[in-house]
Design a protein around this nucleic acid. Sequence first.
DNA 1: AATTGTACCTGTCAGC
DNA 2: TGCTGACAGGTACAAT
Length: 274
Amino acid sequence: MPELPEVETIKNSLIPTIIGQKINQVIINYNGNIRQPEPLVFQKLLEGKVFLDLQRRGKYLLFFLSGDLAMVVHLRMTGQFHYLKRKEPIKKHTHLIFCLSHKNELRYVDPRKFGTFDLIPQADLHTLKGLKDLGPEPLSSDFTSTGLKEALQNKKRPIKSLLLDQKIIAGIGNIYADEILFHAQIHPETNCGKLTHEQIQRLYQGIVQVLTLGITHRGTSIRDYVDGEQEQGGFQNFLQVYGRGGEPCSRCGAVIIKGKMMGRGTHYCSICQQ
DNA sequence: AATTGTACCTGTCAGC
DNA sequence: TGCTGACAGGTACAAT
């Protein structure tokens, strides 16, 4: 479900609601999302702790807690956090409930059950698999056009595959990959090593601009995504290719192609994207 | 070493 | 109406 702009929006929506709040109780309805420690230890460790800070890295949410603990969450396809009053009805697929002060609750809802929770000492954050291997944050100064160019050199893989690789750049998923490639006017199956200097410059600009615009519109709500206040995003109204197979290209009027690459739906304009 | 395919799980929607 | 199969904002691990 959520890519960088959605996770950023969720983070921003949760900061004013949960930071400073104490976890009085943790209710586990389904324990399959908890990777470590054992669910009962997870529950015990969290009770009495306070949410001190919340950060995003790639598509991960990092909850910093008292006791030098960090709760690392990946929402995968359908994970959601809902900040609600205790009296609100419990939705189907509510797997975890963090009971907070003033009859408020932070609930984790995840129909497909793919999301992950790791509760670890903050000192171990740099050892957590997945998190530790992430490439640069695309909206930080760590991400440069020179660095992007180096990552592309001598690679035969298709550019879309590279954009989805979290070790190269953190946070891009299937929607934004397609939108970025449309923006840069690059065919998704182009070999990385064959991109021209101009194409690489457009790609760099596309990554920064499309992700920034996604955040400006508070993410893309196509089927499941909502933020911590259950508000939908607005970027779905600005998508140029994703989900628009068969429709005319906004730039040239040709029909948008929907194909499949590496098991993922892939949308592009066969005229604009060469 | 680098890339691709498969598994994980539930819901929805198109086509019969 | 069902039923069936394909597909869905992702990643870990197995297989090439």
